[in-house]
Nucleic acid binder design. Sequence first.
DNA 1: CTGTTAGCGCATTCAG
DNA 2: CTGAATGCGCTAACAG
Lengths: 357, 357
Amino acid sequence: MPDVSEKDSMHSSMPTMKDVAQRAGVSVKTVSNVVNDYEFVSGTTRQKVNQAIEELGYVVNVPARNLRLGHTGMIALAIPDLTLPYFAQLSSLVIKEAKKLGLRVLVEPTLYSRQGELEALHGSQHSMIDGLIYSPLELGMGDVEQLNVSYPIVLLGERIFTRDVDHVATENVEGAKRATSYLIESGCRKIAVIGTHPGEELGSAALRLTGYKQALEEAGLPFDSRLTVPSRMWHRVDGESAMNELLDSGLVPDGVVAFNDMLAAGALHAIQMRGLKVPDDISVIGFDNSEDSQYLSPSLTSISPGLHDVAHLSVQVLKNRIDGVRPLGVESGEHVFCKIASTLEIRNSTRPLTQQK
Amino acid sequence: MPDVSEKDSMHSSMPTMKDVAQRAGVSVKTVSNVVNDYEFVSGTTRQKVNQAIEELGYVVNVPARNLRLGHTGMIALAIPDLTLPYFAQLSSLVIKEAKKLGLRVLVEPTLYSRQGELEALHGSQHSMIDGLIYSPLELGMGDVEQLNVSYPIVLLGERIFTRDVDHVATENVEGAKRATSYLIESGCRKIAVIGTHPGEELGSAALRLTGYKQALEEAGLPFDSRLTVPSRMWHRVDGESAMNELLDSGLVPDGVVAFNDMLAAGALHAIQMRGLKVPDDISVIGFDNSEDSQYLSPSLTSISPGLHDVAHLSVQVLKNRIDGVRPLGVESGEHVFCKIASTLEIRNSTRPLTQQK
DNA sequence: CTGTTAGCGCATTCAG
DNA sequence: CTGAATGCGCTAACAG
C-alpha cells in the first residue's frame, strides 16, 4: 500500500524530527544523533533513520537549531559597494573562505553612507549573525568606540586603527611607495597622483599619498602639489576627468600613479584621446590589480593588494573568535593586527627598467 | 546604588524579554507588544519598557522570533559568479530592492558548477530562507523537476522555461536582433558573433544567436557559420582570443556582436592590437551595458538588459509569494512570466547611421 | 489595555 | 547505545 501523499501546499508543514523518529521507530534523540553525525549510533539504527529521513524529505530546521545552539553560522560582510570590482572580488573570496569553515555570509553594502556603516554595526541583526567583517569608508578615528560591540568583529581597511579589535590591513604606504619608486627607476621625473582625498589623515588615499611622497623624497625629487589631483570617488569617469584636468593645466606629467585601477583606466583613456602614448609619453600605474587591468590597452601595471590573503585571514580570525579560541600568534587579551603584503604586477602601461634614458 | 555591571565576557548572555519585563515591571507580552509596535499600548507603559530596553541594551533574538514565526526574513540569491560585473550589479540591485521590503539577502555564488546550482536549490538552507531568486547557468530543460521545491522561487535567465515557477527573463532574442540590425543599418555586411555555445538549445547564447540570425534573414544577408566564434566563458580574455582566431582565419568581418561587454572589450583590444580601427574598420556591439562599457576606447555600444527592472520585479514577486498574495496580473494558480525590455545604448564603437556607405 | 500560558523544533541533560 | 523530559527566546491565543 502506498504511503499517504505529502501535502506540499504550504511550505510551513515540513516534517520534523518527531515525524522522522516516529517513522523510524526510534526516539527524537536518536534522530538528532544521526543528523549531527554523533559517533555512537548503531549501524542499523542509523540506516533506519536515514531511510525515514529520505522518505519524508526531512531537513533540519535551522532557526530552531540556531535558537538552541545560540549561534547562527552566519557572518556579515559590510562593504561600501558591491559593484566595485575590488569589493566584488573581496566578497567572492570571503564567501568562499567562509564556506570552507561552514559559515554563511550576509553581504551588506553600506553604500558610502555613514549611517549605513553604523547600521551594519548596530543594526537589528546582532542576534542573526555570529560575527562581522567590517570595511568602513566613512568612519574615522572619532568612531573607535563604535567598534566596541558585543560580538566578534574583524576590521578591514585603513580608516580606523585601534588595539581593541582584530584588524587586517593592506600595505598602502608601501605599495604606493613601490609604485612611485618603480616609475622613478624607469625614468619618470614628473609623477602625478590621481585620487587624493585632501584633508583626510587616514584611509587608503592618505596612506597612498604618504607612500608617494616617501618615494619622491628618497629619490631626491621635489613634491609638487599641482601634480596631485583629488578625486572623492574612484570610478573610471573620475580618473578620466582628473587626467583631463591635469592635461588641461599644461602640466603634463611623465608618470601617473592612480589610486585604483578604475581611475587608471580613465586616465589611460584621457591620455590616449589626446594622442599621447602610454607608456612612451606617460607611464601609468594603478592600484588593486583588478581582473580588468590586464585587458586594458595597454595592459595596466598595478599594485596587487593580496586580496586572497585578506579574505582568508579575516575569515579565519573571525571564526576563531566565534569559537572562543585565540587566533594564531596573538597573546591573550591582545588583538590581531596584520598587514597583508602587496606586490607590483608589471605590465605594459609602464616602461621597462632597461628602457630608461 | 549603581546597577550590577554587565558582563560582556561572552556575547551569549544577552538580556531577554523576560529581563526587560522584570525591570520594567510588566509582563513579557507587553514587552513583545512594544517591540513589535503593537498599536494598543499605553504611552506610559511603552515608555517604561523602552527605558528598560535602553538600560539593558536589549535586542530581540532573531532566531527565536524566526522559530516562532516560521520564517526568517531572508531570501537567497543564487548566481554563477559574483565577480562578473553583470551579477555584481544584479546582486547589488536585488539587495537594495529586498531591503526596501524588509528582506535580507544571502548571496550564493554557484561558481559555474552544476552541483553548486543544485545545492543552492536543495541545500540545507531551506529552513533558513523564505525564498530564492535563482539564476542557473548549468541546468537545462531536463532539470525542470528540480525547480519543484517547497518554498517560493523566482527563476532568472533563459536556461529553463516552465509554467510552474515565476520567471523573470530578459529580451535576448530581441536584443541580439536589434544589435545586429543596427550594425546592418550602419553599413555592415559581414557581421561576426562572439560567444556562442554550440550544441545548446537554450540559454542566453542560443537565444542571442537566434536573434542574430533573424536580423540577418530579415535583411536578406546570408548566414556564414565561420563568422560565429564559440566561447564557453565570457571573460575578456575569451573575447580577445576569439577575435584573434577570427582575424587569423583571414575572414575579417566589418561588424562584431559580442555576447557580453567583456567579450566585446577583449575583441576591441585584439582588433586595435592589429592596427585596425573601431568603428571605421570594424564595428563592435556588446551585451549588458555594464558600467565599464562607457570607459572603453572607444566607448562601447551595448544592449542594456534592464537589470533594475529585473531586480525590482523579482524581489516583488518573491515577496508576494512569501506573503501568500498573488502577484499583480497573474491568475490564480498561474505563474509570472515576464520579459524585461532591453534597449540599445549607442556609443562610439559603432558607426553612426548617417555614416553608412 | 495587560498578564498567563503554551508551544515553534531542536539539542541536551539524565536515566535506563 | 537509546528514550523521556526540559528549555533556548519569542509570539499568539485566551483570559482578565
